[in-house]
Each structure stands twice: as structure tokens, then as C-alpha cells.
Write a protein that binds this DNA or RNA. Structure first.
Length: 475
RNA sequence: CGGGAUGUGGCCCAGUGGCUAGGGCACCUGGUUUGGGACCAGGGGAUCGGAGGUUCGAAUCCUCUCAUCCCGACCA
């Protein structure tokens, strides 16, 4: 494998691409804007899927699958929806060698086809709530793509729920946002801000969009998941009505929510370093790599010792014993660091003599020597400590790069420098929001739930502010 | 869609009109090695992104084209 990764300090974009390619997470595809997710990258996604899927099931959702192809007319039924998505649609016009009577759109998201089906399935309040999730690929014709962060085709999950009343749908929206927050923080060790999107940033067709936003190591924000309160927009567009307990006909209330393979990119940009990937133990497909170190004369003894250590770890941890005899130990150390394995166990003759092993943690590089009969306990502690440390380190970084700013000069000045997150008061007008974007390239990432009683005056226009918003440059 | 850059064995790159296109890494064979990316010897692998043109002669010059990356515009 190629040696060096571009250091973050030199070029953050190159660093990111190097990590993805050299850790073999993904590769460019023959088709522009698409990517091949390689086994190591897919393994990460699978672990994310499993954890999220469990959380969805725990909250009462079931999985289903809706088709990739959507009649073009469906997309047009919700006015804002088509306006938002039409520039990104790929359309199938021919099938079986003949031109289709009605073109088919490759789903950019599945609201329309799902609500066309919900119309058939929902008659009474007894059919509600309907809580369905699907794991699928979607396609959006993107002008500018980046591995994992924005590709034309990507994998995701989309939850689509239908409710008898507004409050329940709103609760569902926030409940799933909270699921995402928990997942990001507990599994990915990635602290996130939560809150509502501004009107200009919300999903096309939603009443309100909420998101989780994380800070990457270049201080830019990444939207890592969204949850939408759709009101009755899609129910009205697709005439989905139900008979309520009073016997009256009413439109159904809806939500949708999703996270995608973009999370893999988020994970990389939150924790990894110039040596390669750094993975939180909960998502690492290999938690422990054992690297035996021997000379010809000591091979058999060291291997036997390493196998004994391995037997103490397998079953309890996802463990790999590196049996390769071609490469040097130094090469292997670098390699396991490249792929982000949280804990490395080094075992050589010097350790064996003392019945010890060396544990090396990926997040800090710290090495400790521990008695071999305590290896399992020590590894367990180490993994827990790494998971915790990654979160705390990322949180501290975010805090260090977050400011409260009330003066517009300071505000623009901050984004001329390194930038980061800014809490600033905002009057709520699209004009002030647009001015900020023009002046600084920063946008409103989220309007936090926790708001001060008096938000003061708008950082841009000075008029009384409606709320405090978080501004940042973003991916 | 605008600006910039780059296309040469699997990867990174050298080669600015002249002989059989070269190096490093990777790969294969044999041997020696192995505590932070080992070494020796031998070997395989390229229609120089594509098309056309100029020329006695093109990886090299010209025209067109395709692709990728970066920056911007756009974008749940």
C-alpha cells in the first residue's frame, strides 16, 4: 500500500480523499459522481445500519421496500417537492427498446411513491400510525461530488410515517431526531447540534426540517441527518385521508427522516488523523489487531504465545491475528493504523519473556505493557476509554471553535479567519440570511431548541431578533 | 455551468521533436530478514486518455474530444 497521506494541515480535501482511497473504503466508479463502496467502507456502513435498524425497531418501526422507479407525474404532485428536486432528477425514457408512455424517475427520495401507496393502505384511524422505514439507494444528479459526502447515488434509510394528528407527527419527527443524535454521539462518538432548519434550508415539501449538525476538523459543519415534519402536504397531494374517531374524514399527518452513507464521511472527518482512519470501537469491524514480532529463531514460540493471547480475546472482541510473515512489524503497525483499528496488541520475544503484551491505542498512540492474563480486561477498558475519548476530544474541538457573536464586523471577521460555529441572533428574515451567505459563505446550520428568553437584536440588521441561530460554513 | 490543474505499466512520477519510453512503490520467483513502513538477485507488466493533423520522425508541436481532481456557482 502507498505510504503517505497528505497531512491535514497541507490540504484538508486531499487528506480526506487519501484516507478514503488508501484505507480502501471506496473507489471512484466509471460513472462520474458515483462511487464504489469497498468491503472496508461497506463494513462500516453495515455496522451503522445494524445499530440504527435496532433503534428503529425499538421505536416501533418496520422495514419495507418501495421501487426505485417512480412515475414522473408523482414527483410533480407536491409543488415545493418538484421545485426542489427537478434539477437533480435522472429520468428513464426508454424500456425494452421502446420509448415509455410516461417517463420514470429514479427516486431522489421516496415520499411520492410511498404516499401513493399509503393512500391505498390508510382508511381509518385504526390504520394509524403507520411507521415504515426502508433501506435503499437514491439518485440525485449532483454537479459536484465528493466521496461519501455527496455522490450521485448513495445508500440511506428513509423513514416515512403517517399519523392521525399533528402533535403525534411532530413528536415522531423529534423522536427520530433524538434517535439520530443518540446514534451519532453514542456510536460514532460524534457530538452534534440539533435544531430546526431555516426556511431556505429545509427539505422541499416539508413544513419543518430538523437536523443533526456536526463540526468537522476543518471547522465546517456537516449535516449528518434530517427529520422532517411534513404536515399534511403529501397527504393532500396524494389525497390520503382517514376516518377519525368522530367519523369525519381528515388528511393524514406525515414525517420522514433519513441518514445516509454520508455518515461514513462524517466519521472520517471527525476523528481521523494524518496516519489514517481513527474509528470508534463500536463501529470498527476489527477492534483488536495482534501483531506478533519475531525472528526466525523465535517464530514458533512467539506465534504460540500470540495465539494464546488471541484465544483470550476472540469471542469477546472482534480480533485479528496478523499472521503475515513478509512485512516487517513496523509496516504492519502503520498498516493497522491506516485502517483505524482501535487497539493493537504487540507481542515480541521481550514481552513473552515477561509474560506481558504491549497495548497501543489508536486515538492517542499511547503504549502500555500489561500482563498477558489480564489482556482481555485491559482491552475492554481501553476500548471503552477510546470510545469516550473520541467523543470528548471532538466535543472539546467544537467548543473551542464556537463563539457567541453579536457584532456583525466580528461576525464576518470570524469567518475570514479559521471560522467555526457562531451563535448569533437573527431576525428571521431571508434577506439577512442571504446577506450573511454572500458576505461570509456561512449559512444557518440550525436554530437550536434551547433559546434565550430575550434573543437581543439581529446580528445583521440590528432589528429585534426572533431567535439565536448557529451559523457556519458547511459541506 | 464558470475558473484552475492533471491524464505515461496496478499506484506515484520523470521524460519539451530523434535509437528499443525510464525510475520508485506494488506484483511474481529465490534467498536473507523482521521491536515503527527491511535487503539482495532475477522477472512479468505500457497501443504514453481518445481522435485527427503537422513532420523523414510525435509521449513531446497543433486542433478537437473524453475523463478525473481542486476552487466557485448550485444543491435534502
Amino acid at each position: 500500500m502507498a505510504e503517505h497521506i497528505t497531512p491535514r494541515s497541507k490540504n484538508y480535501s486531499d487528506w480526506y480523499i487519501d484516507i478514503v482511497l488508501k484505507a480502501k473504503l471506496a473507489d471512484y466508479s466509471p460513472v462520474k459522481g458515483c462511487m464504489v463502496i469497498r468491503p472496508r467502507g461497506y463494513a462500516l456502513w453495515e455496522r451503522m445500519q445494524r445499530a440504527l435498524d435496532d433503534m428503529f425497531k425499538e421505536t416501533g418501526h418496520t422495514n419495507a421496500y418501495f421501487p426505485l422507479l417512480i412515475p414522473e407525474s408523482f414527483i410533480h404532485k407536491e409543488a415545493e417537492h418538484i421545485e426542489g428536486f427537478s434539477p437533480e432528477l435522472a429520468v428513464v425514457t426508454h424500456g425494452g427498446g421502446e420509448e415509455l408512455e410516461e417517463p420514470l424517475v429514479l427516486r431522489p427520495t421516496s415520499e411520492t411513491i410511498i404516499w401513493s401507496m399509503y393512500k391505498k393502505w390508510i382508511q381509518s384511524y385504526r390504520d394509524l400510525p403507520l411507521l415504515i422505514n426502508q433501506w435503499a439507494n437514491v439518485l440525485r444528479w449532483e454537479k459536484r461530488t465528493r466521496l461519501f459526502l455527496r455522490t450521485s447515488e448513495f445508500l440511506w434509510q428513509e423513514g416515512h410515517t403517517a399519523h392521525a394528528d399533528k402533535e403525534e407527527a411532530q413528536q415522531e419527527t423529534l423522536r427520530m431526531l433524538e434517535v439520530y443524535r443518540r446514534f451519532a454521539e453514542d456510536y460514532m462518538a460524534m457530538p452534534v447540534l440539533t435544531g430546526a432548519k431555516s426556511e431556505s434550508e429545509k427539505f422541499a415539501g416539508a413544513v419543518t426540517t430538523y437536523s443533526i449538525e456536526a463540526m468537522m476538523q476543518d471547522r465546517k459543519a456537516l449535516q449528518a441527518g434530517t427529520s422532517h415534519f411534513l404536515g399534511q402536504n403529501f397527504a393532500k397531494a396524494f389525497e390520503v385521508t382517514f376516518q377519525n374517531t368522530e367519523g369525519n374524514l381528515d388528511h393524514v399527518w406525515a414525517t420522514s427522516w433519513g441518514v445516509s452513507t454520508r455518515l461514513v464521511g462524517a466519521l472520517i472527518m471527525t476523528h481521523s488523523d494524518d496516519k489514517g482512519l481513527v474509528l470508534p470501537p463500536k463501529l470498527a469491524s476489527t477492534e483488536v489487531a495482534i501483531v506478533p514480532i519475531f525472528k526466525n529463531a523465535t517464530r514458533d514460540q512467539v506465534m504460540a504465545f500470540a495465539e494464546k493471547v488471541e484465544s483470550r480475546l476472540t469471542g469477546r472482541f472482534r480480533t485479528v491475528l496478523d499472521r503475515d510473515e513478509q512485512n516487517s512489524p513496523g509496516w504492519k503497525f502503520a498498516e493497522w493504523e491506516m485502517v483505524g483499528v482501535p487497539v493493537r496488541v504487540e507481542i515480541g520475544p521481550r514481552d513473552m519473556e515477561k509474560d506481558m503484551v504491549v497495548l497501543v491505542r489508536r486515538d492517542t498512540g499511547e503504549k502500555t505493557q500489561v500482563p498477558s492474563d489480564q489482556v482481555a480486561e485491559q482491552v475492554a477498558e481501553l476500548l471503552e476509554s477510546i470510545q469516550k475519548n473520541l467523543f470528548e476530544r471532538a466535543l472539546a474541538f467544537r467548543e473551542e471553535n464556537t463563539r457567541k457573536i453579536s457584532n456583525y464586523q466580528d461576525f464576518t471577521g470570524y469567518f475570514e479567519g479559521d471560522g467555526g460555529f457562531v451563535y448569533a441572533s437573527w431576525c428571521g428574515s431571508a434577506e439577512c440570511e442571504a446577506k450573511v451567505k454572500e458576505d461570509t459563505r456561512a449559512t444557518i446550520r440550525v436554530i437550536p431548541f434551547d433559546q434565550p428568553r430575550d434573543p437581543g437584536s439581529c446580528v445583521v440588521c440590528g432589528k429585534p431578533a426572533a431567535q439565536v441561530a448557529v451559523f457556519a460554513k458547511s459541506y
